[in-house]
Design a protein around this nucleic acid. Sequence first.
DNA 1: CTGCTATGTGAACAGTGTCCACTTTACGAG
DNA 2: CTCGTAAAGTGGACACTGTTCACATAGCAG
Lengths: 205, 205
Amino acid sequence: MTVQKAPARPYHHGDLRRALADAATELAAVGGAENVTLREVARRVGVSASAAYRHFPNREGLLAQVASEAREALARRMVAAVAAVGAGSDGAPVDRFRATGRAYIEFALDEPGLFEVAFRACPPDLYVPDDPSPYALLSEALDTLDHAGLLAVKRPGAETAAWVAVHGAAVLLGDGMLPPSDRDTIIDATLDMVGGGLLVATAHA
Amino acid sequence: MTVQKAPARPYHHGDLRRALADAATELAAVGGAENVTLREVARRVGVSASAAYRHFPNREGLLAQVASEAREALARRMVAAVAAVGAGSDGAPVDRFRATGRAYIEFALDEPGLFEVAFRACPPDLYVPDDPSPYALLSEALDTLDHAGLLAVKRPGAETAAWVAVHGAAVLLGDGMLPPSDRDTIIDATLDMVGGGLLVATAHA
DNA sequence: CTGCTATGTGAACAGTGTCCACTTTACGAG
DNA sequence: CTCGTAAAGTGGACACTGTTCACATAGCAG
């Protein structure tokens, strides 16, 4: 037998920061923020718990990174949804807008753990920005509607109001405060309300 | 000096369950759920930590009780708000409805810790129902609008859609995901959107 | 008075976040 | 090439947490 000069894992990991964030994301996907334990994350990567402090200020900092990436995943899902709609009928900005909102809610229900972490209150000094941001995508979709002359209200806060409704549905459905059996009804009612409240009458038949 | 036969706190507390819930509520009001520690709650009441387990199955059970009472406090605030509106002009169900929603959001901003606990995901076997419930109050306000012939949509889920928007605004503003400077603008835009999406055109001038 | 039962105690266990002094490695200056 | 310095990882400690257990106490029914 030749001498084993190279151990399976070298002393230096290579990209421990990434590995930690990935492991933390897996734990968050399973059980939300409370399931993300610095020690368990380190254990999974095969590293000591204190090693994490070379790459993140603390547990909250690690969670902030996970949150940012979770928001990006949500955003990707939203763009994928509009792309799918655009492929069929590309002249329907209202449909694209609805698809954006629907994707937001469906992400929250498919990935409750990640969604919870994505919008957890976070001390400002630890906040990690995300790009593209789900909010920006919703704003964009509304801008498109505006340029098409379909937006009834131009009051500042219109795009925020849309986000608010979609986010509320996602949170309440995800936390089980609303009966899961009414899932689709609630989603439709929410999107209808947004449409009715923000669009000109002709836009939503 | 006479002998001290009666210590300040007798061995049996009298109503330890209430005292624990109250102390937990105080802690939750200051720092949300994560600030509610079974040991600190017990410490404040002047009792051993394990005593709490005679009255609650575990920490989560104590938090469920706090949550229920927090929802009741929110509901009280909503009825107070409609009462205040009703006093002035009692023939304006739309104003009452807006006041209900506004009170909901303002409670979330005034008492962020309690609001967070109030709507935390909770295992069903620990859930403590509340009466009156904020959701029931919003539904009531919408029923009134319906009887007055002001509701444009009767689709099941209309009251849920209203809740969803109001709750979303409360959550996003409370978690600092939206600029606090736009607070009032956002609240107004949200309530306008709900009105525009659910009411007949004549109702919101 | 005598037990029974509800209530409260204190010690223990496993697990956590965080910090510290220490070791190991990588890498650039000379 | 060598060597020192800084980056990266280690293990052990500390204080704290939720939870459980055998035990102590007090009030109440018979």
